[in-house]
Design a protein around this nucleic acid. Sequence first.
DNA 1: TCTGGGGTCCTAGGACCC
DNA 2: TCTGGGGTCCTAGGACCC
Length: 427
Amino acid sequence: MSFTNSSKKKIALIDCNSFYVSCERLFNPKIKNVPVVVLSNNDGCVISRSTEAKNIGIKMGEPYFKVKELVKRNNVQIYSSNYALYGDLSRRVMKVLKGFSDKIEIYSIDEAFIDLSHIKDEKVEGYGKKIRERVLKWTGIPTSVGISHTKTLSKVANHIAKKNKAGVIFLKDNIDQTLKRFSVSDIWGVGRQLSKLYIKNGIDNAYKLKSISNSWVKKSTNVLGAKTVMELRGVPCINLETEETKRKSCCVSRSFGKKVESLDKLTESITTHCLNAAEKIRIDKQTTRAITVFIRTSPFDKNRKYYSNSITIELPVATDNSLELVKKSIIGLKKIYKYGYFYQKTGIILSKLREASEKDLNLLAPILENKSDTLMKAIDFTNAKYGRNAISIAQAGINKDWKMRREHSSKIDTASFDSLPIINVYK
DNA sequence: TCTGGGGTCCTAGGACCC
DNA sequence: TCTGGGGTCCTAGGACCC
């Protein structure tokens, strides 16, 4: 490995601006220059804000009910989240980005790192502009591009590009000057706890963190803390993960639209979550060997007693069979359910995932082997064609009066013919 | 009245072994 | 009743990310 070469790396971070809001705007030009926010599931919190909404003072992650007044006063447009839409548009954006380089890491629904080391320094900024223009033209989504020698520094560059509306920032010269003005808590990898620790020790900007001694960081934090410091110095420690890897666990959970007391309704919700999770791992051709069920009351309700519990059930043979998983999860639920509480959220986690093709060495495996594989395939096929839950099981509930609130949905579905606009043509 | 959901990685500490 | 030292593996919980 050549140290000098790697220190000259150029990594770009492309990040979609106010991604969910931008997605909603694509299909509704009327909300283009007005304040818009997108809410989390259950219309709980603000998770995406347009610039206008930020300027009004609506904070990221704030509970919706706390900003309702502000929303009303400023006529802010509200949207419930529509992940099917965002996921689809994300795939389009990533496809465009892949056209620029194979060395790409899709980091989240609205972000990707690309290795631009092969581009000459003097051409890098122009290249970043080209990326922005093409993504905007081909998908309609605005982005910001930050480029520097490490992933952490490109995050810094991107942050600045977003803030001052530069569009593209290539952070190469006077890095220290920039870092001196960059708050320690805005650094990628520095969360609430680390911020507290750093600020307590007088480290309040990125430059001070960069200048701290290795021994102090190692002693006071962990390897991740040390990596962040090295990356701020321009030494790449966090690799570009260009391989798409399968997930190691799969969680499906939801808050209720209104609190739930009865075991019956908890059973319905757990069954529903379980079916969805099982379908997800089947799509990825994976099986699970452990299922965790969890339930909890609201941690914010100061007037009622808090209860939270979970149970993990190991499966003797790896499976992707919905019916089997539902059966196990309900046994688990009955063990942790306590009467007399008002539940706010339930969920299940499938863990110890592995490739479906990896056969079990368990002696019982051949006997227990999925007889209902064909049934699962038929269910998945039908649901893919006619919509999720076209076929379900009765235990999942029919009315589902506990299901989440979603009162402001744009109901746009780019993957369904039903939601194509109808145009009447008159002669 | 109303506070999201889905991931990954790291570490401390317990269990277990020789 | 006395009760070492070193190693591995696993898990729960914490911290972080978007």
